[in-house]
């Protein structure tokens, strides 16, 4: 099973077989795990503020930015590509704001338009670069569905740093974010700059989907932002606890995805991350003690019996 990575066997010969993973993979897993935690934390605030779809538009737009950054610099370093992705994501969010303000396009329609148009641009750019045989361009496709196997230690450090910074911002501004998410009208009436706080939140979401690109890819990264918060909400009625649980669920999903794609190097990471998160979501929807479907059905049944 470990024949694909022979250098490992000598350095961890005394460890049990299942620990015999290259140290590089461990570092990369830690970096992606940090992304999973931060995506869950930021995603919780975004889901509570009903801004989750903006993250999806940002993620899809990022692909075009990644391709343009590669085209402009000719380099495939992760910081360069993600920097391009972030610029494209913010540009797409800007277009979204303008569409809503100056045309009468509804929120969901505007989001769908920005998402599909920007993603179309990204796909066309990547396909164009790949089909012309530009050296290295083939790697760009990894940003579609996620691919952690090729990440370096430096890449992982970048992902972890951005994730940690995002979590710090979220924790520091938790009071303000919660207030605006719960009751924006009251927040505005008592003097809080609701629009500015919203921009900060959406900016954080954009940053999270960008650093989530290697783990889940432009198509699926939104799952990392949305699924853990929804699963976490099932288990708690408090925002801080929800952030913590969503972070843990995001961590579990990310680690599972990295581990599985390390074992099977050709496998895209994104689908594995999403499936792991979806499994935890299904358990949460079914079994959470207060809100889960099964305990609720059980309580209804015993209530009927009690009445009879």
């Amino acid at each position: 099973m470990m024949s694909g990575i022979p250098d490992v066997v000598c350095c961890v010969a005394t460890a049990p077989a299942w620990l015999a993973v290259p140290p590089n993979t461990v570092v990369v897993a830690a970096g992606v795990a940090a992304v999973g935690v931060a995506a869950g934390v930021i995603g919780s605030l975004a889901v509570l503020r009903k801004r989750a779809l903006a993250g999806d538009a940002a993620a899809h737009a990022a692909l075009a930015g990644v391709a343009l950054a590669f085209l402009a610099t000719g380099r495939r370093d992760l910081p360069v590509l993600l920097g391009g992705g972030l610029l494209a994501a913010l540009a797409a969010l800007g277009v979204l704001v303008l569409l809503r303000r100056y045309t009468r396009t509804r929120d969901d329609a505007a989001t769908a338009i920005v998402l599909s148009v920007s993603f179309g641009c990204g796909i066309a750019l990547v396909a164009g670069l790949t089909s012309r045989g530009v050296p290295d361009a083939a790697g760009l496709e990894h940003f579609l569905l996620g691919h952690t196997a090729a990440l370096t230690v430096a890449d992982a450090a970048l992902l972890a740093t951005v994730s940690a910074a995002a979590v710090v911002v979220a924790v520091v501004g938790l009071k303000e974010a919660t207030l605006v998410a719960f009751d924006p009208g009251f927040a505005a009436a008592s003097g809080w700059p609701v629009a500015a706080i919203d921009y900060c939140l959406v900016g954080l979401v954009a940053a999270m989907v960008i650093v989530g690109l290697p783990a889940a890819g432009a198509v699926l990264v939104t799952a990392l932002v949305v699924i853990p918060p929804v699963a976490a909400r099932q288990w708690t009625d408090r925002v801080p606890t929800m952030l913590l649980l969503a972070g843990l669920i995001g961590l579990a999903a990310a680690v599972f995805g990295v581990a599985a794609s390390a074992l099977v190097p050709r496998l895209a990471t994104g689908p594995l991350v999403v499936l792991a998160a979806a499994t935890l979501l299904a358990v949460s929807l079914l079994a959470a003690p207060e809100r889960g479907l099964l305990p609720r059905a059980w309580r209804r049944r015993s209530a009927r019996r009690g009445a009879a």
Partner: peptide, 16 residues
């Protein structure tokens, strides 16, 4: 359905 308690909501009056 927002995950806050009654006490949390009243505290929001002190935030400003």
């Amino acid at each position: 359905d927002f995950p806050v308690t009654v006490g949390d909501v009243v505290l929001m009056g002190t935030y400003a």
